[in-house]
Amino acid sequence: MSGISVELESHLSGEITTHCFCWIIRRTDKVVFGFTDHDRTLLIDGVSCEPQTGLSASEAASALGLSVDTAEIEGALSSLAISDGDIERGAFDGASVETFLVNWAAPEQHTLLRSSRIGTISRSGGRFVAELKSSSVDLDKIKGRRITRQCDAQLGDHRCGYNGAAQKGTVVTVLSDREIVVKGLQPPDGNWFRNGKLTLANGGMNVVLAHQPYGEGIRLSLRDAAIPDIMVGDAFALTAGCDKSFAQCKAKFGNVANFRGFPHLPGNDAVYNFADGKGNFDGGPLVR
Protein backbone atom coordinates (compact mmCIF):
# COMPACT_ATOMS: atom_id res chain seq x y z
CA MET A 1 0.00 0.00 0.00
CA SER A 2 1.29 3.46 -0.83
CA GLY A 3 1.21 6.31 1.65
CA ILE A 4 1.04 4.05 4.73
CA SER A 5 3.36 4.80 7.61
CA VAL A 6 5.90 2.18 8.65
CA GLU A 7 4.13 1.78 12.00
CA LEU A 8 0.69 1.14 10.45
CA GLU A 9 2.15 -1.18 7.81
CA SER A 10 3.86 -3.18 10.53
CA HIS A 11 0.62 -3.33 12.51
CA LEU A 12 -1.39 -4.57 9.53
CA SER A 13 1.23 -7.26 8.88
CA GLY A 14 0.77 -8.68 12.35
CA GLU A 15 -1.40 -11.62 13.36
CA ILE A 16 -3.78 -9.43 15.39
CA THR A 17 -5.00 -6.05 14.14
CA THR A 18 -7.03 -3.29 15.79
CA HIS A 19 -8.25 -1.30 12.84
CA CYS A 20 -11.50 0.48 11.97
CA PHE A 21 -12.83 2.96 9.44
CA CYS A 22 -13.36 6.69 9.89
CA TRP A 23 -15.17 9.11 7.62
CA ILE A 24 -14.67 12.87 7.56
CA ILE A 25 -17.45 14.71 5.71
CA ARG A 26 -16.72 18.26 4.56
CA ARG A 27 -19.82 20.07 3.35
CA THR A 28 -19.72 22.85 0.79
CA ASP A 29 -20.73 25.34 3.51
CA LYS A 30 -17.44 24.51 5.35
CA VAL A 31 -19.17 22.46 8.07
CA VAL A 32 -17.11 19.36 8.96
CA PHE A 33 -18.30 16.10 10.57
CA GLY A 34 -16.40 13.01 11.66
CA PHE A 35 -17.75 9.48 12.10
CA THR A 36 -16.30 6.06 12.87
CA ASP A 37 -17.53 2.48 13.12
CA HIS A 38 -15.45 2.09 16.32
CA ASP A 39 -17.05 2.28 19.78
CA ARG A 40 -15.23 5.39 21.03
CA THR A 41 -14.31 8.83 19.71
CA LEU A 42 -11.17 8.99 17.58
CA LEU A 43 -9.25 12.15 16.67
CA ILE A 44 -8.19 12.08 13.01
CA ASP A 45 -6.39 15.08 11.49
CA GLY A 46 -7.87 17.34 14.16
CA VAL A 47 -11.45 16.12 13.60
CA SER A 48 -13.30 14.19 16.31
CA CYS A 49 -14.93 11.16 14.74
CA GLU A 50 -18.19 10.30 16.48
CA PRO A 51 -18.61 6.63 17.50
CA GLN A 52 -21.54 4.27 17.11
CA THR A 53 -23.46 6.37 14.60
CA GLY A 54 -24.81 3.38 12.72
CA LEU A 55 -22.66 4.14 9.69
CA SER A 56 -21.23 1.31 7.62
CA ALA A 57 -19.44 1.21 4.28
CA SER A 58 -19.97 -1.03 1.29
CA GLU A 59 -17.22 -2.51 -0.82
CA ALA A 60 -15.54 0.22 -2.85
CA ALA A 61 -15.22 -0.46 -6.56
CA SER A 62 -12.08 1.02 -8.11
CA ALA A 63 -11.10 0.97 -11.75
CA LEU A 64 -8.21 1.98 -13.96
CA GLY A 65 -8.58 4.66 -16.60
CA LEU A 66 -11.19 7.41 -16.60
CA SER A 67 -14.18 5.44 -15.29
CA VAL A 68 -15.83 6.65 -12.09
CA ASP A 69 -15.01 4.80 -8.87
CA THR A 70 -18.02 4.19 -6.65
CA ALA A 71 -18.80 3.20 -3.10
CA GLU A 72 -21.62 3.68 -0.62
CA ILE A 73 -22.05 4.74 2.98
CA GLU A 74 -25.15 3.39 4.64
CA GLY A 75 -26.46 4.22 8.08
CA ALA A 76 -29.30 5.10 10.34
CA LEU A 77 -30.25 8.68 11.07
CA SER A 78 -29.03 8.21 14.63
CA SER A 79 -26.40 10.92 14.65
CA LEU A 80 -27.46 14.39 15.73
CA ALA A 81 -25.12 15.72 13.03
CA ILE A 82 -27.09 14.14 10.17
CA SER A 83 -30.78 14.96 10.21
CA ASP A 84 -33.46 14.01 7.73
CA GLY A 85 -34.18 17.70 7.21
CA ASP A 86 -30.56 18.45 6.25
CA ILE A 87 -30.60 15.66 3.68
CA GLU A 88 -33.92 16.86 2.30
CA ARG A 89 -32.74 20.45 1.79
CA GLY A 90 -29.53 19.28 0.13
CA ALA A 91 -27.05 20.31 2.81
CA PHE A 92 -24.89 17.25 2.10
CA ASP A 93 -25.14 17.41 -1.72
CA GLY A 94 -21.67 17.62 -3.24
CA ALA A 95 -19.92 17.21 0.12
CA SER A 96 -16.49 15.55 0.11
CA VAL A 97 -15.97 12.36 2.09
CA GLU A 98 -12.52 11.19 3.21
CA THR A 99 -12.31 7.52 4.16
CA PHE A 100 -9.52 6.53 6.57
CA LEU A 101 -8.17 3.20 7.75
CA VAL A 102 -7.24 3.72 11.40
CA ASN A 103 -5.51 1.72 14.10
CA TRP A 104 -7.94 2.51 16.90
CA ALA A 105 -5.39 1.47 19.54
CA ALA A 106 -3.07 4.19 18.18
CA PRO A 107 -5.19 6.66 16.13
CA GLU A 108 -2.11 8.56 14.96
CA GLN A 109 -1.54 5.50 12.76
CA HIS A 110 -3.99 6.12 9.95
CA THR A 111 -4.02 6.43 6.20
CA LEU A 112 -6.37 8.02 3.69
CA LEU A 113 -7.92 5.29 1.55
CA ARG A 114 -9.98 7.46 -0.78
CA SER A 115 -11.46 10.90 -1.19
CA SER A 116 -14.92 10.94 -2.74
CA ARG A 117 -17.89 13.19 -3.26
CA ILE A 118 -21.47 12.53 -2.21
CA GLY A 119 -23.73 11.92 -5.17
CA THR A 120 -27.24 10.57 -4.78
CA ILE A 121 -28.70 10.21 -1.27
CA SER A 122 -31.72 7.95 -0.83
CA ARG A 123 -33.76 7.40 2.33
CA SER A 124 -36.00 4.55 3.41
CA GLY A 125 -37.39 3.56 6.78
CA GLY A 126 -35.28 5.95 8.83
CA ARG A 127 -32.05 4.95 7.05
CA PHE A 128 -30.05 6.63 4.36
CA VAL A 129 -27.65 5.47 1.65
CA ALA A 130 -25.14 7.98 0.30
CA GLU A 131 -23.46 7.14 -3.00
CA LEU A 132 -19.83 8.19 -3.15
CA LYS A 133 -18.13 9.04 -6.44
CA SER A 134 -14.51 9.76 -7.26
CA SER A 135 -13.31 12.99 -8.84
CA SER A 136 -13.54 11.27 -12.24
CA VAL A 137 -17.24 12.12 -12.18
CA ASP A 138 -16.28 15.66 -13.22
CA LEU A 139 -15.35 14.25 -16.63
CA ASP A 140 -19.01 13.32 -17.17
CA LYS A 141 -20.31 16.83 -16.57
CA ILE A 142 -21.90 18.59 -19.50
CA LYS A 143 -20.02 21.68 -20.62
CA GLY A 144 -21.98 24.21 -22.62
CA ARG A 145 -25.48 23.39 -23.88
CA ARG A 146 -27.28 20.30 -25.05
CA ILE A 147 -29.08 20.42 -28.38
CA THR A 148 -32.51 19.11 -27.42
CA ARG A 149 -36.10 19.87 -28.29
CA GLN A 150 -36.94 20.71 -24.69
CA CYS A 151 -36.02 24.03 -23.06
CA ASP A 152 -32.94 23.91 -20.81
CA ALA A 153 -33.70 27.10 -18.86
CA GLN A 154 -35.38 27.24 -15.45
CA LEU A 155 -38.74 28.95 -15.37
CA GLY A 156 -38.28 32.57 -14.29
CA ASP A 157 -34.46 32.69 -14.47
CA HIS A 158 -32.51 35.25 -16.51
CA ARG A 159 -32.43 32.99 -19.58
CA CYS A 160 -36.15 32.29 -19.43
CA GLY A 161 -37.09 35.89 -18.74
CA TYR A 162 -40.67 35.09 -17.74
CA ASN A 163 -42.03 37.33 -14.98
CA GLY A 164 -44.70 36.20 -12.56
CA ALA A 165 -43.59 32.56 -12.39
CA ALA A 166 -43.82 32.47 -8.58
CA GLN A 167 -46.62 33.38 -6.17
CA LYS A 168 -46.46 33.58 -2.39
CA GLY A 169 -48.93 32.12 0.06
CA THR A 170 -49.51 30.83 3.58
CA VAL A 171 -50.56 27.43 4.90
CA VAL A 172 -53.94 27.57 6.66
CA THR A 173 -54.72 23.86 7.15
CA VAL A 174 -52.68 20.63 7.10
CA LEU A 175 -54.94 17.78 5.94
CA SER A 176 -52.18 15.12 5.80
CA ASP A 177 -48.46 14.82 5.12
CA ARG A 178 -49.21 15.29 1.40
CA GLU A 179 -52.32 17.51 1.45
CA ILE A 180 -52.43 21.13 2.60
CA VAL A 181 -54.81 24.06 2.24
CA VAL A 182 -53.30 27.45 1.47
CA LYS A 183 -54.32 31.03 0.85
CA GLY A 184 -52.78 33.83 -1.19
CA LEU A 185 -52.56 32.00 -4.53
CA GLN A 186 -54.35 33.17 -7.65
CA PRO A 187 -53.85 30.53 -10.36
CA PRO A 188 -55.20 31.52 -13.80
CA ASP A 189 -56.48 27.98 -14.37
CA GLY A 190 -56.72 24.56 -12.74
CA ASN A 191 -53.39 23.30 -14.12
CA TRP A 192 -51.28 26.39 -13.52
CA PHE A 193 -49.33 25.01 -10.55
CA ARG A 194 -49.31 21.37 -11.66
CA ASN A 195 -45.73 20.09 -11.28
CA GLY A 196 -44.77 23.47 -9.82
CA LYS A 197 -42.00 23.81 -7.24
CA LEU A 198 -43.06 24.60 -3.66
CA THR A 199 -40.38 26.29 -1.54
CA LEU A 200 -41.17 26.75 2.15
CA ALA A 201 -39.68 29.42 4.36
CA ASN A 202 -38.40 26.66 6.70
CA GLY A 203 -36.17 25.33 3.90
CA GLY A 204 -38.40 22.47 2.77
CA MET A 205 -39.09 21.88 -0.92
CA ASN A 206 -41.72 19.82 -2.71
CA VAL A 207 -43.57 19.40 -6.00
CA VAL A 208 -47.29 20.10 -6.42
CA LEU A 209 -49.11 17.35 -8.29
CA ALA A 210 -52.51 19.05 -8.41
CA HIS A 211 -54.50 21.93 -6.93
CA GLN A 212 -58.18 22.70 -6.62
CA PRO A 213 -60.45 25.15 -4.76
CA TYR A 214 -61.13 24.19 -1.15
CA GLY A 215 -63.47 26.49 0.76
CA GLU A 216 -61.92 29.94 0.74
CA GLY A 217 -58.48 28.55 -0.03
CA ILE A 218 -56.75 26.17 -2.43
CA ARG A 219 -55.95 22.54 -1.72
CA LEU A 220 -52.48 21.40 -2.83
CA SER A 221 -51.57 17.75 -3.38
CA LEU A 222 -47.84 17.21 -2.83
CA ARG A 223 -45.60 14.60 -4.41
CA ASP A 224 -43.64 13.78 -1.24
CA ALA A 225 -44.22 13.81 2.48
CA ALA A 226 -42.95 17.17 3.70
CA ILE A 227 -39.60 17.28 5.55
CA PRO A 228 -39.49 19.13 7.86
CA ASP A 229 -43.19 18.94 8.67
CA ILE A 230 -45.40 21.68 7.26
CA MET A 231 -47.09 23.73 9.96
CA VAL A 232 -50.09 26.06 9.88
CA GLY A 233 -48.84 29.59 9.23
CA ASP A 234 -45.80 28.52 7.20
CA ALA A 235 -45.05 30.89 4.33
CA PHE A 236 -44.02 29.58 0.94
CA ALA A 237 -43.37 30.47 -2.70
CA LEU A 238 -44.88 28.37 -5.48
CA THR A 239 -43.77 28.48 -9.10
CA ALA A 240 -45.97 27.55 -12.01
CA GLY A 241 -45.42 24.13 -13.53
CA CYS A 242 -43.46 23.96 -16.77
CA ASP A 243 -42.86 20.80 -18.81
CA LYS A 244 -40.11 22.51 -20.90
CA SER A 245 -42.03 22.01 -24.15
CA PHE A 246 -42.38 24.56 -26.95
CA ALA A 247 -46.16 24.11 -26.96
CA GLN A 248 -46.52 24.97 -23.27
CA CYS A 249 -44.07 27.87 -23.50
CA LYS A 250 -46.24 29.34 -26.24
CA ALA A 251 -49.74 28.57 -24.94
CA LYS A 252 -49.24 28.87 -21.18
CA PHE A 253 -46.58 31.55 -20.81
CA GLY A 254 -46.50 33.37 -24.15
CA ASN A 255 -42.72 33.31 -23.94
CA VAL A 256 -41.72 31.73 -27.26
CA ALA A 257 -39.11 34.44 -27.98
CA ASN A 258 -37.10 33.20 -24.99
CA PHE A 259 -37.55 29.46 -25.55
CA ARG A 260 -34.15 27.82 -24.97
CA GLY A 261 -34.67 24.57 -26.85
CA PHE A 262 -34.50 23.48 -30.49
CA PRO A 263 -38.01 22.20 -31.28
CA HIS A 264 -37.57 22.31 -35.06
CA LEU A 265 -34.84 19.68 -35.14
CA PRO A 266 -36.06 16.34 -36.55
CA GLY A 267 -35.47 13.33 -34.34
CA ASN A 268 -35.88 9.57 -34.57
CA ASP A 269 -39.64 10.01 -34.66
CA ALA A 270 -39.32 11.82 -38.00
CA VAL A 271 -37.40 8.85 -39.42
CA TYR A 272 -40.06 6.41 -38.24
CA ASN A 273 -42.85 8.58 -39.64
CA PHE A 274 -41.15 8.58 -43.03
CA ALA A 275 -40.92 4.79 -42.98
CA ASP A 276 -44.58 4.18 -42.15
CA GLY A 277 -45.81 6.88 -44.50
CA LYS A 278 -47.86 8.68 -41.85
CA GLY A 279 -45.62 11.72 -41.44
CA ASN A 280 -46.08 15.14 -43.00
CA PHE A 281 -43.00 16.05 -45.03
CA ASP A 282 -44.13 19.17 -46.84
CA GLY A 283 -41.08 21.18 -45.79
CA GLY A 284 -43.03 23.13 -43.15
CA PRO A 285 -41.98 23.63 -39.51
CA LEU A 286 -42.25 20.70 -37.12
CA VAL A 287 -43.93 22.89 -34.51
CA ARG A 288 -45.98 26.06 -34.76
Score class of each variant (00 low, 15 high):
residue 278 K to H: 05
residue 128 F to M: 10
residue 6 V to Q: 15
residue 58 S to Y: 10
residue 34 G to P: 00
residue 172 V to R: 00
residue 110 H to L: 06
residue 216 E to H: 04
residue 231 M to E: 14
residue 8 L to R: 05
residue 226 A to C: 13
residue 112 L to D: 09
residue 26 R to C: 02
residue 9 E to F: 07
residue 31 V to Y: 08
residue 268 N to F: 10
residue 120 T to M: 14
residue 254 G to M: 01
residue 218 I to Y: 01
residue 180 I to N: 02
residue 43 L to E: 15
residue 79 S to M: 04
residue 273 N to R: 05
residue 47 V to S: 05
residue 252 K to L: 01
residue 157 D to K: 04
residue 163 N to M: 07
residue 204 G to T: 02
residue 57 A to M: 12
residue 169 G to L: 00
residue 211 H to V: 03
residue 7 E to L: 10
residue 205 M to C: 08
residue 156 G to Y: 04
residue 164 G to H: 04
residue 228 P to I: 01
residue 209 L to Y: 13
residue 54 G to E: 07
residue 138 D to K: 05
residue 287 V to W: 15
residue 73 I to L: 15
residue 26 R to Q: 09
residue 277 G to Y: 14
residue 280 N to R: 12
residue 66 L to Q: 14
residue 140 D to K: 10
residue 203 G to N: 13
residue 193 F to Y: 13
residue 19 H to K: 09
residue 50 E to W: 04
residue 61 A to K: 10
residue 206 N to Q: 10
residue 37 D to Y: 09
residue 217 G to K: 00
residue 234 D to F: 01
residue 20 C to Y: 01
residue 205 M to R: 13
residue 142 I to H: 09
residue 149 R to I: 03
residue 100 F to D: 02
residue 252 K to P: 07
residue 109 Q to L: 05
residue 95 A to L: 06
residue 123 R to M: 12
